[in-house]
Design a protein around this nucleic acid. Structure first.
Lengths: 333, 333
DNA sequence: GTGAAAGCGCTAACAA
DNA sequence: TTGTTAGCGCTTTCAC
């Protein structure tokens, strides 16, 4: 059902129908009523493509997620979706699978007028390769975008991140306050800046307290065979605490510690960056640093929509929002 | 950059540029070359809205997911996205959050010409309320759609599901073959048809073997306080096996069994419907029935695109595809 | 081999 | 108060 068809049935012009449906004061109450009734009857919905073409805005936001199976990003997406829907925006979701090439393709693909703006976390490969030209192209094209969680220093745009250094520091400090002496760190996402920052926080707390860093207590590795590596790590060091800075190894570490007959938290205390859902899979449940992905997502989305709606850059650009982590102690069965 | 602007710069007409870019044989090789070069120089990309409007197709698929934090749906989305991208389609993602209202809103929202077709799993509330009028409206509007995993009997459309009865049967049989005698079932998603089917498979295997069903061995409950309930369930029955038919309680059951000093799998054997990633969070890792969400997703997407591309219904409509589950024994640390 | 013109569905300036 | 018209960016038929 189109305006044209409605107009014909009502014996009025297309523009009258259009104006009536948009509650124009140019149109008589009576006509408005007639038009709206017929429109409702035929379930008329204005055509999205025509609207987008006419108004040069799509009311659509592109979201590029490195890995939707990562619970952090899934939750961030929930936050983005909620905020977008609230403001009458749809979201087009692309998955970069941590690949630079796919990320570039996605951006190319989305800059054909599909979306008014973009929200994304940078793919791991992009960070490793230090490539940012595809983002700079967005700046040239004047397409607003917001980076969240994994951001690039040299791209001048709005960003939403968590206070990773602070988080690492806080977690380590909480171990120290419990009287822990040999605090290990597991880092299997060292490519990412967030990991470096969290580790920095850890190191700061350690040095502050013990005066020096024991490199042997830092397990920097890949996720392959992580089980075996953690087992060795536990066997070779008399750890009484572990900080796992990604969002799965904490749970794995707990399970391995138990298999090695450690008593938790008596012998060893473990904190992970996992969210509470994943933490629930562990027994005893893991203490976690909640990086609040849904808040990050909704904040990023809010920021983007702000840019889109106030059609020129205000003095706050580029805006960096830092979200604080929350430490939440795991419950128990 | 638009065709118009390119045409002006090249001193040719808009239609010549359009044809050149589309490799029309009407246009001379030389002109094609000139046009393409300039287009490349200015990074010309055809406007999506204009294209959609003109061709009345958007090359976009709407996906409605009940809950993206559920790993099953996240994986299904990965499958959908992969297949869509492969075929030059974008996906618009909506989350129904298991709510009927949101599902209806999403569908209303997507039928404004945003998408050529839809893929979705039905929200839990929709199943409970037995509401399907919003889907029937899609049929009226002639918008192709595919339901996956959670489907509605009375809606005549393409569907992709897993063989849930068979899965429940297979899992139970594997317990029986191990010599297990008291096989419990945990069902906290009874609202969903998939749960009923899985339970049917369980019951079939039990009756076939033992002649009768012991209702006490079936824990049908909600997810609230699931830990306590499982604890009681284990304490009150001398179970030697548990089949958990949703995708998280298997892991929880393992953790609780361990806390109750059960030896796994000696004293008790546990199978869940979780996927391998979640299963990894348990120690010893859970044996799982893989319901192959990515395959389901890509199959559903393939089926939809087939309908979209062959613009009329062929004799295979409506097509029901049944995906077999795979039983995969958990590794160990 | 190239261009003019119509039209996809819509809005809005302007005319009546 | 209503209608006419132009135009968003594109494809495609038809004329030249």
């Amino acid at each position: 059902m189109t305006l044209k068809q409605l107009a014909k049935k009502l014996n009025v012009s297309i523009s009258t129908v259009s104006k009536a449906l948009n509650d124009s004061h140019e149109i008589s109450k009576d006509t408005i009523k007639r038009v709206k009734e017929l429109a409702a009857l035929y379930n008329y919905v204005p055509n999205k493509s025509a609207l987008s073409l006419k108004q040069s805005k799509t009311k659509t936001i592109g979201v590029i997620v490195p890995n939707i199976l990562n619970h952090f990003f899934a939750k961030a997406l929930v936050g983005i979706e909620k905020e977008a829907t609230k403001n009458g925006y749809q979201i087009i979701v692309c998955l970069s699978n941590e690949s630079l090439k796919k990320e570039q393709d996605n951006i190319q693909w989305l800059t054909n007028g599909s979306v008014d703006g973009l929200i994304f976390a940078v793919a791991e490969e992009t960070i490793v390769e230090r490539e940012s030209s595809h983002f700079k192209k967005l700046l040239d094209l004047n397409i607003p975008f917001v980076m969240f969680d994994r951001v690039l220093e040299d791209v001048k745009t709005d960003k939403v991140i968590i206070n990773d250094t602070e988080a690492g520091y806080k977690a380590t400090k909480s171990f120290i306050n419990q009287g822990r002496k040999k605090i290990g760190l597991i880092n299997c996402i060292d490519n990412l800046n967030v990991a470096k920052l969290r580790q920095t926080g850890y190191e700061k707390a350690i040095i502050e307290t013990f005066g020096e860093l024991n490199q042997k207590l830092i397990l920097k590795t890949s996720i392959n065979n992580i089980q075996d590596k953690i087992k060795m790590f536990l066997n070779e060091n008399e750890l009484d605490a572990i900080l796992a800075i990604d969002n799965v190894t904490g749970v794995i570490a707990i399970n391995i510690a138990k298999s090695l007959k450690f008593s938790i938290p008596k012998d060893i205390s473990i904190i992970g960056f996992a969210d509470s859902l994943i933490a629930r899979y562990a027994y005893p449940t893991l203490t976690t640093l909640d990086s609040r992905p849904d808040l990050i997502g909704s904040t990023a989305c809010k920021q983007l929509i702000h840019r889109l709606d106030s059609n020129q850059l205000d003095s706050t650009f580029p805006k960096l929002t830092v979200i604080d982590t929350k430490i939440s102690s795991g419950g128990s069965f």
